[in-house]
Design a protein around this nucleic acid. Structure first.
Lengths: 225, 225
DNA sequence: GGCTAAGTGTAAATTAGCCGACATTTTGCT
DNA sequence: AGCAAAATGTCGGCTAATTTACACTTAGCC
């Protein structure tokens, strides 16, 4: 990839804003760059050197396979998110991979060890990163708390609200979301069966709460969810 | 409190082992110390300055109240654990408090801002702390994954295994755990009703898997859980 | 010692939502 | 265009687990 582009990719992320351009240039930690298109599976396998990834464009889902071969959606990663071993701890047990959801994605990556060196040399960045990881933890905690204590309907509503907030285009009280998920994906995210998710979505449609199709979800009035 | 003791409290924690004694002495960040006994409620309320707490002795549970007044157990904190705003982000929304489970506890605390300064001056510590938070996140993730995908029985078994591993005294394949939780507490932790938890525990007792009473739980053969 | 509140035991009624079993629709591919 | 595969729609039976309801036991306190 073009050297200039590398720096730009990093500099663009809010985490690295505290660094000056020349600092970023010195670091030069990006070691990989990859493009992929819909449906592709990207392994960030345990055999490889531990890396941290930065999703520049598109959406992917992180999927884990348990011992029975069941797929579980661990996370949905959006443009600008870091993913991989954010905890800076290598973990070779679990078999995880990423699947591309949007039409195409761009991912860049750097070695965990390089990133650690970088953090050691930049205390301010280290602090930002710590907060960043902490924030992520808080989000995950809240999500899970929802999953456990609420029923499927509430979970779906909450998920739609979150999704709308993160990616939706608001116009008055109505929000349009680009729908790159199948109903099965949604079901997995809110931890219910595909059938239940389908039912609930149709119910919402008949109740005039939203318009659903495979390309787009329009929430009529976000304040009513 | 005695100045010397302060340093010892910090130095004793694995997070601060990388620092030399003189470094710790310079920091002097501990600003609070507290003892409390069973049943007491400790607020680390939103009105106060944000703090990070370190549990030196005993056990507490972190409880959250939702808008309906329902109690949810967020976390069980054991000796040596840090708790509070580990994410370094103040969050004034949620109403959380800690309740003492063991006969008595000792807690020390320091200001989040002091801790941030400390991290800025010690990049190595910042890195350790990030890993520490990350590890905590991983544990939480695993717990939740269990809660969601498994049935109540499996959840109880997993919880007992974890508990035994963390605090149990092993003798051959049998493990004795000091039981400072009520059946209701256990039920809340594994996210089920009190009745179901009672039933399952009694079932395990009749199946000779464990001996349960209010003071102690003895798991007959940990390998069979 | 006796009272009260907290904790534990047990059972029946009810229910959310999973599962299996399809039909139908849409998409992607050659 | 035509085919196969993926995604969506719909239905009842089934089951784990919540809820409601109440009896019993233990612990703490005056």
């Amino acid at each position: 990839m073009y050297e200039e582009l590398k720096y730009w990719y990093l500099r663009d992320h809010k985490l690295f804003r505290t660094l000056s351009f020349s600092q970023i240039k010195q670091l030069c930690i990006i070691t990989g760059f990859k493009k992929a298109s819909k449906g592709e599976i990207i392994y960030f396998s345990s055999s490889d050197v531990p890396r941290i990834f930065l999703l520049k464009k598109g959406n992917i889902k992180i999927v884990a396979l348990d011992s029975n071969g069941n797929e579980t959606i661990k996370d949905i990663i959006q443009k600008g998110d870091l993913f991989g071993e954010l905890t800076l701890e290598t973990d070779n047990k679990n078999e995880e991979y990423a699947k591309v959801l949007s039409d195409d994605v761009a991912i860049c990556s750097f070695l965990m060890s390089d990133f650690e060196d970088l953090l050691l040399r930049n205390p301010t960045l280290a602090l930002s990163y710590t907060k960043f990881v902490g924030l992520k933890m808080k989000r995950i905690k809240n999500n899970y708390a929802n999953l456990i204590s609420k029923d499927a309907k509430t979970r779906l509503y909450q998920f739609l609200k979150d999704w709308a907030e993160q990616e939706g285009v608001r116009e008055g009280n109505s929000v349009a979301i680009e729908n790159y998920l199948t109903q099965n994906d949604i079901a997995q995210i809110i931890c219910t069966s595909r059938q239940t998710a389908t039912q609930l979505l149709n119910e919402m449609e008949t109740n005039q709460l939203l318009n659903y199709n495979r390309k787009e979800i329009i929430i009529r009035d976000i304040t009513k969810l």
